[in-house]
Nucleic acid binder design. Structure first.
Lengths: 348, 348
DNA sequence: TATTTTTGTGCAAACGATTGCATTTTCTGA
DNA sequence: TCAGAAAATGCAATCGTTTGCACAAAAATA
C-alpha cells in the first residue's frame, strides 16, 4: 500500500491511477490486474475480488487514450450544425444527445455559423479528434463538397440531416418538406386564401426548394396562378422588416403569408398587426418548425411541425448503426421524418 | 511506394496512415519521420521536404489517441447543461464554442435534463472521456455534490456557470441576478406599479434567490410591503397556466408581473390579454433573459438581458486559462456578467 | 594523416491497456 | 510417488507517437 501511495508524494500532482499502480500495490502483474477487472475466467476468485475492491476504492478508470489506441474507437460522434441558438437545431441536437446516450456515445459539437470556411475547419477538427461518425447539416453558403468527401474517404460514417448535400453520396435523414409545405398551403387555400405569398430561403438549400415546390404544386392543384414575385427569399427578421411592408402596400394585398420559419412568421404577424390589419381575418399566417414561440404569440401560430427531436434521434441512430455495422445497406440510406400541420389561430 | 500502398490491398479496409507507413515507404526510421514533421533542426533539409511532401500528399494526421497517451491532453472540454433547447443555454453554449475554437479546444456536451441522476452520469461520462476541464450549470434537482467533488479530486478544472453549487469550492461565472432584478422592479415601480407579483423559481437555485432578493429590496426601498403570497414558484408554462388566473381573479388585482424567464412572461401577456385586460396600460409585464421571442410578441417584452453568449465565453476562457496555467489564483475565481434592462412595450 | 567536431539518423523506452503464449503452481488419479 | 492435467499467473508484443541517447558518416581541425 505504501508503495502505491508513494506516487502521490513523489510528484505532488495527483495523477490518474493505472493498472500498473494497482499491480505494484497488490504485488501482481499488470496482466492479472487487467484480467481481474474484465472478469476473465483464468483468474482465481480471490485475486479478482482483491483487485476489484482495490480498483473501486481508488476509483480506477481505464485510460481512454490507451483504450482508443488499441481499439481505434472512442465512442465519440461529431456533429456540425449551422447554429445552436435556434429552436429547430437545438431540438435536433437534443434528440441526438438522447439517442447517443443509449449506446454510450459522446457528442462533439461544432458550429459552422452558416459559414463555409468554418464548416471546413469543423470537418478537420472532427477528423483530428478521431470521431467514429459525423452528422452534418450543411451551411447556407456551402457549394463545394470536398471536405465532406474527405470524411467518406477516411471511411468514417457520414449522415446528413435536414440540410443535405446533393453533391455527395451518403446517408441522410430529412424532413418531409415538400409534403409539409403542400399541406400547409392547401390548408390556407381551403380557408379561402388566394393570394398567398411564400417567404422562402436561398435556393442553395434543398429544403427551401422542396418547400417552394410544395407551395407551387398546391397552388397549381387549385388552379391558382403562380407569381414569381410572390416567393422572395426572406428567411431572417432583417429581411422580413424590409420585404413585408412592400407586400402590405400593394393594391392587391396578399391574404396569406406562408413563412419558411416561425421567427419570420411571428415577426410577420407583428408587422401586419402594426399596420392595422387583422390576423387571421384579413391575412392568414403560417410558419414552419413549430417552435415554442408558436404558442406564446398572439394569435397563436399555425405552423408545420418538423419533429426536430425525432429527426436528430433518427440521424444519430443511423450513424451508430453504421458504426456498429448494424446498417449494412450498400447504397444510400434515406430516412424521411413526416411533418405535421398544427392549426392554431393565425389562419382562418 | 509499392511497399507503402500495400497496407491497403492487404487489409482492403482503409486505415489511417501512420508514421510507420511513411517510414517504410521512404526507407527511413520512424523517429526521423517524426522529427521531420515537427521541423526538428537535426534533420537535413532534403529529408524534411521529402517527408513533409509525402505526409501532405497522403493526408497524414497524427493519431489523437497516441498523442493523448503521451501528453495526457486531448484539447477537449466537457459541458453539462440542463437543457439545450432553451434560448439562454443555447446562447451560452454558442459563446463557449466560439471561445473554445480560439484555442482549438473541442466541446463535448451532456444534458442533465434537470435530473440529478443524469447529471451524475454526465459527470462520469466526461471523466471517462478524459476531458481536460468541465463546465457545469447544475440541474434544478441537484442537492448533493459528491459527483462534482470527484471532478475536483481528479484535479480537473471545474467552472460553474449561471447555476452554481454553493456546496463546492470552485470557480464560477454568474449573471448579476440580484442587480438585474432590482433594476427591473425599480423600473416597474418608477412607472407607477405597486402590486408587483414575482413569478419565481425553486429556491434550490441560487439565481432564483438572488432575483427574489433583488425584487424584495426594490420593494423595500420604495416602502412597498412584501407579501409572501406574491412570489410563487412559477417558472414553466404549465405552472403559469394554473397560477396566473388566480392572481387575475383577485379583487386587488396585481398591476405588474416580474417573471423569472421570458417564456413565462410571454405566456403571462397572452393570458392577461385573453382575460380582456390591457398590457401595459392595466398590467405591466417584465421578463428575464432577453430571448428572441421578446421582440416577436405583441407588445414587445421588457426584459433583463442576461448576455448568455458573453457568459459562456467568459466561463470557457476561465477553464482554458486554468488548464493552461494562465489563471493561477489559489482561491475561487468568481466573475460576474452585468445584466441590462431592455425596456420595450410591455411595461408602461 | 590522425583526431576532433559536426551533422544526420536510428534504437529503444515510454505512455496505459489488452492478449496470445509461456510458465509456474496446484490438483488429480494411477 | 509421480506423470499429466488443470488452474493461476507472468512475460512480452502491440497500438502510434515522442524523445534522450548512441552511433555512424562526413566535415573541420591539427
Amino acid at each position: 500500500m505504501i508503495i502505491f501511495e508513494s506516487f502521490l508524494t513523489n510528484t505532488m500532482k495527483k495523477r490518474q491511477i493505472t493498472l500498473k499502480d494497482i499491480a505494484k500495490a497488490l504485488d501482481l502483474s499488470v496482466s492479472t490486474v487487467s484480467r481481474s477487472l474484465s472478469d476473465h475466467p483464468d483468474i482465481s476468485p480471490g485475486t479478482k475480488v482483491l483487485v476489484q475492491r482495490f480498483a473501486k476504492e481508488h476509483k480506477y478508470k481505464p485510460n481512454a487514450f490507451a483504450l482508443g489506441l488499441k481499439t481505434n474507437a472512442n465512442k465519440t460522434i461529431g456533429v456540425i450544425i449551422p447554429e445552436i441558438v435556434h429552436f429547430f437545431f437545438s431540438s435536433v441536437l437534443s434528440g441526438m444527445q438522447d439517442e447517443a446516450e443509449k449506446d454510450d456515445f459522446n457528442i462533439i459539437i461544432c458550429q459552422s455559423n452558416e459559414d463555409y470556411a468554418q464548416e471546413v475547419k469543423a470537418t478537420q477538427t472532427l477528423l483530428a479528434a478521431q470521431v467514429q461518425g459525423i452528422l452534418v447539416s450543411s451551411s447556407k453558403t456551402t457549394t463545394c463538397f470536398e471536405h465532406f468527401q474527405e470524411i467518406v474517404d477516411n471511411n468514417i460514417p457520414l449522415v446528413f440531416f435536414d440540410r443535405i448535400c446533393t453533391g455527395i453520396n451518403t446517408d441522410r435523414v430529412v424532413v418531409d418538406d415538400y409534403q409539409g409545405a403542400f399541406t400547409a398551403v392547401c390548408h390556407l387555400i381551403g380557408q379561402g386564401c388566394r393570394r398567398i405569398v411564400f417567404l422562402g430561403a436561398s435556393s442553395l438549400l434543398a429544403i427551401a426548394n422542396n418547400r417552394r415546390m410544395g407551395y407551387e404544386d398546391a397552388l397549381r392543384k387549385h388552379g391558382i396562378v403562380i407569381d414569381e414575385e410572390c416567393m422572395p427569399v426572406c428567411d431572417t427578421i432583417e429581411l422580413a422588416r424590409r420585404i413585408i411592408p412592400l407586400f402590405l402596400a400593394k393594391e392587391q394585398r396578399p391574404d396569406a403569408f406562408f413563412c419558411v420559419n416561425d421567427e419570420v412568421a411571428s415577426f410577420c404577424i407583428r408587422m401586419i398587426k402594426q399596420a392595422g390589419i387583422r390576423v387571421p381575418e384579413d391575412i392568414s399566417v403560417c410558419g414552419f418548425t413549430n417552435s415554442q414561440i408558436a404558442e406564446l404569440i398572439d394569435p397563436a401560430l399555425t405552423t408545420v411541425d418538423q419533429h426536430g427531436f425525432e429527426l436528430g434521434a433518427t440521424a444519430m441512430r443511423l450513424v451508430i448503426d453504421r458504426i456498429n455495422g448494424e446498417e449494412t445497406k450498400d447504397g444510400i440510406v434515406s430516412r424521411v421524418i413526416k411533418t405535421k400541420l398544427i392549426i392554431r389561430e393565425s389562419t382562418r
